[in-house]
């Protein structure tokens, strides 16, 4: 596996130095078990990168490491050229990473509105924080408009997923990190979520790092990385995704 700047040179944008997210030689452990094995990976600005791999290979671990929920043993993480490996999760969020975790992690006993307002916390200090929810959020996810006063924990899985993405967008992130946003969700809602993510990239120009099992969604990405046993074993533009790779790395 070559260094991401090499890999990404096939892409129109993205020489090593101006990657939005740049992971180099990342090694991560759970206690003594070695989960991520010298991972190199990059996300170019304004691009959507998809990470694929079977259950339990370490995809969520990778995203958690990016968010600062797990410590790195070695290696570096850079956001827009700045090293963030020693920042806390909340600092990383305020530096512009929006995180939509696997399992959504909606705060259950807060209303949908409060959950959305919490998304504002990621905006940098001093930027004016109006306590209103911008209309573009409801344009992307119309269901949320009618549910503002419901408890977050009472929403259905699909609604929670949309809320989780909307909440991450409230912070105006530079990089959106999505962990299996279509897991356990019916096909029509998957299409809605896909369309929303596409629109976000087009209108806001933000970068997306996506972990996904759903082939249709994977194909929307510009670039893919395939993971096996904690290491990156293949990568390339998604239009080159071969049937062989798909069968090998996608659980579905």
């Amino acid at each position: 596996m070559s260094h991401p700047s090499g890999a990404l040179s096939a892409q129109p944008i993205g020489a090593g130095s101006d990657l939005m997210l740049d992971l180099t030689d990342l090694n991560v452990y759970y206690g003594e078990s070695h989960i991520l094995r010298s991972v190199d990976m990059g996300v170019a600005p304004g691009k959507m990168v998809c990470l694929i791999g079977r259950n339990g290979v370490g995809k969520t671990t990778l995203l958690k490491t990016v968010m600062g929920l797990l410590p790195t043993r070695t290696g570096n993480i850079k956001l827009a050229g700045e090293s963030i490996a020693r920042k806390t999760s909340d600092q990383r969020a305020r530096m512009g990473i929006g995180y939509v975790p696997q399992g959504r992690e909606i705060i259950p006993r807060l209303t949908v509105k409060d959950n959305l307002l919490l998304g504002l916390e990621a905006r940098p200090k001093g930027s004016k924080k109006s306590q209103d929810i911008p209309n573009e959020i409801f344009d992307l996810f119309p269901v949320l408009k009618t549910m503002l006063s419901r408890m977050g924990g009472d929403l259905s899985g699909g609604q929670q997923q949309q809320l989780a993405i909307a909440r991450a967008l409230m912070g105006n992130p530079r990089l959106l990190v999505l962990d299996e946003p279509t897991e356990g969700i019916q096909p029509s809602i998957i299409l809605e979520i896909e369309a929303a993510v596409r629109r976000i990239i087009q209108t806001k120009g933000i970068s997306v790092l996506l972990v996904e099992q759903h082939l249709h969604f994977v194909r929307q990405a510009d670039w893919y990385y395939a993971m096996q046993k904690g290491g990156i074993v293949a990568s390339g533009p998604t239009h080159e995704l071969s049937q062989q790779v798909i069968q090998k790395f996608l659980a579905v």
């Binding site: 806390t88 999760s89 969020a93 006993r109 998304g119 990621a122």
Partner: peptide, 14 residues
């Protein structure tokens, strides 16, 4: 209230 209910997600929200 947010930190009380879900500490790590609250941190990830900033």
């Amino acid at each position: 209230r947010a930190v009380t209910q879900n500490r790590s997600m609250s941190a990830c929200l900033g």
